[in-house]
């Protein structure tokens, strides 16, 4: 098994842990954090293919990851602001109770 396979298997495991968290938990913050874990798993794939790919001269993989981190940070900020807005209306952050978008 080459190191590339190992890296891909690790990122698969991280992605599935994030997916499990996003599907199983009823707390909105934990769902958002599961999505962040899945994004991190995708970034690990970028770095693994950059490191072990056939054309490692270009720094394209690293630049992809930098942009991905920036977009993930924006997504986390907006997601947590939405959670706070929902909490102000519903006094609760359980997903099951956030059934009404119009406050």
């Amino acid at each position: 098994m080459t190191p590339l396979h190992l890296c891909l298997l690790i990122s698969t495991a991280l992605f599935c842990i994030g997916l499990f968290g996003a599907l199983a938990r009823s707390n909105t913050i934990l769902v958002l954090l599961g999505i962040e874990l899945m994004l991190n798993a995708a970034n690990i794939n970028f770095i693994a293919f950059w490191r072990y790919g056939p054309n490692p001269a270009a720094a394209n993989g690293m630049i992809f990851v930098l942009f991905s981190i920036a977009v993930a940070a924006a997504e986390a900020a907006v997601g947590l602001a939405l959670i706070i807005a929902v909490y102000r209306h519903q006094k609760n952050i359980r997903l099951q109770e956030a059934t009404v978008l119009k406050g």
Partner: peptide, 22 residues
Amino acid sequence: AGAEFVAFAQILVYAGAVSMVV
């Protein structure tokens, strides 16, 4: 993996900023 710059960006953004917001 040898991507030092991305590692420091990850620490700054995730361990520093996103964790505080969370």
